[in-house]
Design a protein around this nucleic acid. Structure first.
Lengths: 196, 196
DNA sequence: GTTTGATTTGAACGATTGTTCAGTTAATCT
DNA sequence: AGATTAACTGAACAATCGTTCAAATCAAAC
């Protein structure tokens, strides 16, 4: 049965998640009904329960998948550089690019945390913490190497991430600036903000 | 009748708005019912309609009041300084302090924009734009005076505001750092990020 | 071509939603 | 004291919510 295990050519599960993602991002988790999600994929509401145990799990899986993608993509890109300045530039450009490519996921991941059960919330927050720790380590290494001057690396981590994620609130793909220009502008500010 | 005009000693209206503020911030606009708000003030749901025409207006009034407070408080404090560096420090410290004192209002103002009608949304966005323009003007003046080096003052405005507002996501009143220490840490980063 | 099993429908469930309103209570004014 | 008015209750409204499930439909295997 499809309730617990997907069948051979399961394309419906992903389509349901994509519809939920789009609708949650536009209207908010609480404001979207299972019937709206079903209509978006051309099904009746009851059919959704072949693919998800309930509405809450749908939200959790979206967030969990997003955080897993984030950490996996970061790990795939973070390997080579050694000096803190280059690593910080890599992180800055990676963060902007990754988040700009997934505006709906990012929006949900920041705004719907309160709709998670406590256990699910703790899990998502743990993943976010792991991501933040990557940046904090870069900053600490830079301080130790004398290239950065940040009195409180944890606070600087929060500050940099908030600044970078803020790109999502105003950037539009066909806007005045290319993504590469945006990356460079932000990298200039980040570099100056933390440099010794 | 109280439906259109408040009576002499109206304390109920503010109490309703305070309850709505608290509940909207905790659970989100769509997830809070009029009955929950009424229960918080010790009333039945129907009585709320003596103070607000509908639920949507309750949200709009909270946001509108918050933005009005922000612009009024800013105007009261922004008058004196002349050199861009001092004005930027004033803005930075003001922004952090004002937002930290109103975590619920700030949370709602950023997260529930999509629950406003298009007209109400446009109005709130206009007020936010006016506030952002204050910072942008400071940055442009600083560039003209040669003390700041920001290639794109509009983008730098977005970056600084996102960074400063991010304090609300982690700051706790009885945490490791005092508000003044936080202000100083952020001011250091802002100053370095935009300085020539 | 029949059987099998996955998939979907369509209706039903109890609960809850925002909002209205006739009727009751409480306070103020003459 | 009697009249007026504001404030509130409690019930009702149609609509919608998440979820369940027997029955219908579909696709593939034999």
């Amino acid at each position: 049965m499809a309730r617990t295990q997907g069948s051979h050519s399961d394309i419906t599960g992903p389509r349901i998640r994509a519809a939920a993602l789009k609708l949650f991002a536009r209207h908010g988790f609480a404001a979207v009904s299972m019937r709206q999600i079903a209509a978006e994929v051309g099904l009746q509401a009851g059919a959704l329960y072949n693919y998800t145990p309930d509405k809450q799990s749908l939200l959790y899986e979206l967030m969990r998948g997003h955080m897993d993608d984030l950490l996996a993509a970061r790990q795939a890109e973070a390997a080579n550089a050694t000096d803190p300045m280059t690593r910080l530039e890599n992180f800055t450009r990676f963060h902007i690019r990754f988040h700009i490519e997934r505006p709906d996921e990012v929006f949900i991941a920041y705004m719907e945390l309160r709709n998670l059960t406590p256990e699910n919330f703790a899990e998502i927050e743990g993943l976010r913490h792991a991501y933040e720790d990557e940046l904090e380590t870069i900053l600490r290494d830079g301080v130790a190497a004398g290239v950065f001057a940040v009195p409180d690396p944890r606070i600087a981590t929060y500050a940099v991430i908030a600044m970078l994620t803020g790109v999502n609130t105003w950037y539009r793909p066909r806007g005045r600036l290319s993504l590469d220009e945006v990356e460079t502008l932000y990298w200039d500010m980040v570099r100056k903000a933390v440099s010794a």
